[in-house]
Amino acid sequence: MASNEQWKLLEQLVQEVNQQTEQLKQMQERMRELSATAVSRDGMVTVTVGPRGEVRAIELDPRVYRKLSPSELSGSIVEQIGHATRQVSGEMKELMEPFVPDLPFDDLFGEETGFESFLPRPGTP
């Protein structure tokens, strides 16, 4: 038969698991709500991205068509998407780091990260 001390230890462990589960739920909710907005230096282009870097909004100042060529405009849009994506990746890292401190965040969320970073390397299971 389990002693009173063992029951207290079990209750403490259950409370810790419940607390960690709640913290993970809160982190997941915050991750779903993450977004970042980047604005070009000239204020002509504003881009907002979501937690996975998906573009949620692109706002263009009406004067942009008079001030920028099509290639300058597309370049500015791509640049702001990059800025916003790096910002939201940093916020994601901050949220996740307390839960998985040994995760190689720079490898997963770094600037040079591409889809292939998530694929298995040859010779690995």
Rank of each mutant, 00 (worst) to 15 (best):
L9I: 08
S69K: 11
M92S: 10
L24C: 10
V45Y: 00
S71L: 15
D42G: 08
Q19T: 11
A84R: 01
N4S: 15
I81G: 00
G123W: 08
R30A: 12
F115V: 10
Q23Y: 09
E72G: 11
V49T: 03
Q26W: 05
D61A: 15
F118M: 02
V47F: 01
E59L: 12
L60G: 02
K93F: 01
E116S: 10
L68W: 03
Q87F: 03
F115G: 06
V88M: 02
P98S: 03
Q6S: 12
G53D: 07
A2V: 08
P98L: 08
P98Q: 08
E79D: 14
A38V: 06
P125S: 12
Q28D: 11
R32M: 12
M92Q: 13
A2M: 11
E59R: 14
L119V: 13
S40I: 03
Q6D: 15
E72A: 15
E29F: 09
K25G: 06
S89H: 12
G53W: 03
R41F: 11
L10F: 10
G53V: 04
I58H: 05
R56F: 04
W7H: 14
G123V: 05
G123I: 06
E16F: 12
V78P: 00
D102N: 15
E116G: 05
H83L: 08
V49D: 00
G90S: 06
P62H: 09
G75V: 00
G50D: 08
M92G: 04
E72K: 13
E11R: 14
S89E: 03
M44K: 05
V78M: 11
V49L: 06
G114N: 11
Q15W: 11
L95H: 00
L24Q: 14
V47I: 10
S117E: 09
V64L: 04
V47W: 01
R56L: 14
L119A: 11
S76Y: 03
A57Q: 15
E91G: 02
Q26S: 10
I58N: 05
S76R: 09
Y65G: 07
V39K: 05
G123R: 11
S117W: 04
K67A: 09
L10D: 13
L68F: 06
N18H: 15
E5F: 07
K93V: 09
M92N: 03
G110S: 04
Q12G: 07
T85Y: 00
A2L: 14
T37H: 01
T48V: 10
S69R: 09
Q12R: 13
R66F: 07
T37V: 12
G114L: 05
P120N: 08
L60W: 02
V47N: 00
L9E: 13
W7K: 14
L95W: 03
D107I: 13
T46D: 01
E22Q: 15
P120E: 06
F105V: 02
P98G: 04
P70R: 06
F115Y: 13
D61W: 02
E5R: 11
S3D: 14
F99W: 11
N18F: 08
A38G: 08
V100S: 07
E111G: 05
E112S: 14
S35T: 10
L68N: 00
R32L: 13
E54L: 13
D107M: 13
E22C: 05
M96N: 01
L34D: 03
E5T: 09
R30W: 01
G53L: 03
I58A: 07
G75Q: 02
E94I: 07
V17Q: 13
